[in-house]
């Protein structure tokens, strides 16, 4: 059984909940009072993760921290189709790693802006917003050209990967950080597609997408 150290309002914890739900894997959630309890900085929690952040998973005694590392582990272990983390295809694997790094960028800008607005973190909000817009411009352009090729996801795979799931919540909640998506129509269409993946679940602040048109 997987144990997830979890906070409902954390995008990084949500990324794990989303993948686990899509892969239909059962897990136990241990709530960490991130705010206002600051529990992830407690001595007790630092015994679980010395860096004092969430999420952390423990799977049959195997412990792992850092959102994007956990996604890699869970997809490799629990997706027998190998599509969510395409380890056997060098091109797709390279693209997945590239867009996972991109997701570090969106987390450190768009989601950081959200922490500033919602929880009062002391960041230079204008720098974060500018940084997020720069990344969103690049992502919108990328996805627009993907659509022209008949492709739906950030990598060139016909199937979504963990890179899509890693970027998605940072984008989907950007408006909480004061970052509008009005200028990014291709990103908005991609968020519809992510929200239509079978097994998709929401987190607070998001809604499900309308069902797709019948084929």
């Amino acid at each position: 059984m997987i144990t997830l150290y979890n906070w409902d309002l954390s995008v990084n914890c949500y990324k794990q909940r989303l993948l686990l739900s899509i892969l239909d894997v059962e897990y136990e959630s241990i709530p960490v009072d991130f705010y206002p309890g600051w529990e992830h900085k407690s001595a007790e929690f630092k015994r679980i993760n010395p860096l004092g952040h969430i999420p952390v998973i423990v799977d049959d005694g195997y412990k792992l921290r850092d959102a994007h590392a956990i996604l890699t582990y869970l997809a490799s272990k629990y997706d027998p189709s190998g599509r969510w983390y395409p380890a056997s295809d060098p091109h797709l694997l390279g693209e997945t790693a590239q867009w996972m790094l991109f997701a570090e960028g969106t987390t450190n800008t768009a989601s950081a802006a959200r922490l500033h607005v919602n929880l009062g973190y002391e960041f230079d909000i204008e720098v974060l917003r500018e940084g997020a817009h720069e990344l969103f411009r690049a992502l919108d352009e990328h996805l627009w050209f993907r659509e022209r090729e008949g492709l739906d996801w950030v990598t060139s795979s016909p199937h979504p990967t963990i890179a899509d799931l890693a970027i998605f919540p940072d984008v989907m909640l950007s408006e909480e950080g004061g970052i509008s998506r009005l200028d990014y129509p291709a990103i908005r269409r991609w968020t519809d597609r992510v929200r239509r993946i079978e097994g998709f679940v929401v987190m607070p602040g998001m809604f499900e997408a309308a069902k797709g048109a019948p084929k």
Binding site: R181, L182, P185, R188, R189, D192, A210, K211, G212, A213
Partner: peptide
Amino acid sequence: VAASSDLPLRHTFHGQLLGRE
């Protein structure tokens, strides 16, 4: 206010014209 290709079926596009959303 939009490209026709911005409006696939079952999508809602967010636009703005002269300050009006």
